[in-house]
Design a protein around this nucleic acid. Structure first.
Lengths: 328, 328
DNA sequence: CTGTTAGCGCTTTCAT
DNA sequence: ATGAAAGCGCTAACAG
């Protein structure tokens, strides 16, 4: 209204200029824009959204922003959304918290903000908790697979990753391999990659030992020492961070990688992807996942198609230096 | 309205129940809540914000979500805000982009969303670009110092950090030290810490060599080799990531830390804080910074006080293994 | 304790 | 090309 007065026109005209719809005389438009500028005017997105029933905003929920995994996803989504003319607002659960209630509240915030679509990134929140939201607004799940009739997914293909890494370990010559296994209930993504590593190695003919996470976690030094004593030559872990912890435990125990035991991680993300560590790992291309998630969502919002889709994204091997040929 | 009908009351009552203001009979309230539940009703935050002129939402802008620094800040803010009854919505610039225009748009999104306060986290965006927003809504700058009459700040005390690290290096016995210096224009935070390292070491009596970032960056191997040849025994870098790069270059050049050259970083954040790397570094307690930033803002929003404030947060030394006693 | 009414700041017909 | 008026979904007095 202030802007309208200053430009000497009605608020309808201001609205038309600022939202870019409808026709306005070039000169008038310029005057309005100048007035807006001078007043530091920013359109009230709430009033606009309310009147127009469009917000051009997509909501992203990430479980834990302090983890690089989600940070990368967020950046990628932001970038692609900007390119497609959408805004992204993000909410997040409390770091390290396992409270599903918090996550639900965060999703409610987003929906309440009238976002036009939702991208949910969490390997933790049960899919059932996402469904009610997916009913109200187009939703895509990014970063983990799911088979639900109402949501699309974009995820890293864990099977090809687990398999690729297993093949690498096998091809290096390892025949007795330990794999750290994560419960499905703990992580929807880490479980299948471990399962596939294990399966594939067995298929190839290796002798595989599945290690429950708890055992490794509780007494890592003893575990690695024991593995080496028993002639196991490689240990596959579910994440780079996990691999680093194992390497620490080995250092503590006076063992070296890959001489005494080859170690593999999974993720390949900054900053643990530093050549200094030289981790043998599988890269999750989260930039692709984030971008595809946004594109999938926007395609649906813009009505280009409406069915659901599942897009698996393939990562790739980084050979590194922590896995090598086993000692004769 | 649907909820109202289903519960057999007027929408005013629904509003009172859902927003928690005003008095409603216990039984009625329960009925309303049940109806809301069944319909999967989520209050339209836009309409609410518009009518109530309150959103209980604070807006956080972070420059680059893919960097752990900002991720940690975000998590901490989220957590404290939840504890204080506020929501946080976040926007971010494009990763790695240096486009101030993007950042301005992101801030506009937040203001347009009618957030009640703003927390700006970027060591890059010139403070002048933040000021127009600070005029419209209470703002605190987190993660870097600034002296502006209209904004409060919460930041890590770079001087005590640079000094603490310099003291450590000195106390280890180093008398010829190189310090990588970052231009003020490149980073508002990395500049002063380097400046203080340099100043303090000179004050103590060391012979200090300031290395321009560009020189180190362009030919890191040559630089470290040259330093060692010339009898420099320690190299101080502005970040952990930088330290890791230097360590890589040293490995390439066949040099070892700390035997040939002691190296220090700065940040102390997950995941580079792993004992496996054993970086000698200074920890930035971003959890404290984020929490304090929110508390400062909320205190102002809730009218507990209105002046501006500057809160420096002190980090602490992690001795690590990359810096040691210089070789005789 | 509950219903009625008047906007919040915009966009959007529909006239002009 | 511009203005006037209705109304988006809520909350906040105010009556009842």
């Amino acid at each position: 209204m202030d802007v309208a007065r200053r430009a000497g026109v009605s608020k309808s005209v201001v609205s038309r200029v600022l939202s870019g719809y409808g026709v306005v005389a070039t000169g008038t438009a310029a005057r309005v824009r100048a007035a807006g500028e001078e007043l530091g005017y920013v359109t009230n997105a709430m009033a606009r959204g309310m009147a127009a029933h469009r917000t051009r905003t997509i909501g992203a929920f990430v479980r834990d922003a302090s983890h690089p995994f989600y940070g990368h996803l967020l950046s990628a989504m932001q970038q692609r959304a900007a390119a497609l003319g959408y805004r992204v607002v993000t909410t997040t659960g409390a770091a390290g918290s396992f409270a599903a209630a918090d996550e639900r509240r965060a999703l409610e915030t987003l929906v309440g903000l009238q976002v036009e679509g939702l991208i949910v990134c969490t390997a933790l929140l049960p899919i059932e908790d996402v469904l009610p939201f997916a009913k109200r607004v187009p939703t895509v799940i990014a970063g983990r697979p799911a088979t639900e009739p109402t949501v699309s997914t974009v995820y890293v293909d864990e099977v090809s990753g687990g398999r690729g890494l297993a093949d690498h370990v096998w091809s290096l010559g390892h025949r007795r391999v330990a794999v750290v296994r994560i419960d499905r209930a703990v992580s929807m993504t880490q479980h299948p990659r471990g399962a596939e590593m294990s399966r594939r190695l067995r298929e190839l003919g290796a002798e595989v030992e599945d290690l429950p996470h708890a055992r490794v976690h509780d007494r890592p030094r003893d575990v690695v020492r024991d593995l080496v004593d028993r002639g196991v030559t490689a240990l596959m872990t579910p994440t780079d961070h996990y691999a680093v912890e194992v390497l620490e435990a080995m250092a503590d125990a006076g063992l070296r990688a890959p001489e005494d035991l080859s170690v593999t991680g999974y993720d390949g993300l900054f900053p643990l992807n530093t050549p200094l560590l030289g981790l043998t790992t599988w890269v999750q291309p989260l930039d692709v996942v984030g971008a595809e998630a946004v594109s999938t969502l926007v395609a649906r919002l813009d009505g280009e198609h409406d069915g659901r889709s599942d897009i698996p994204v393939r990562g790739y091997l980084v050979p590194g230096r922590t896995a090598g040929t086993p000692r004769a």
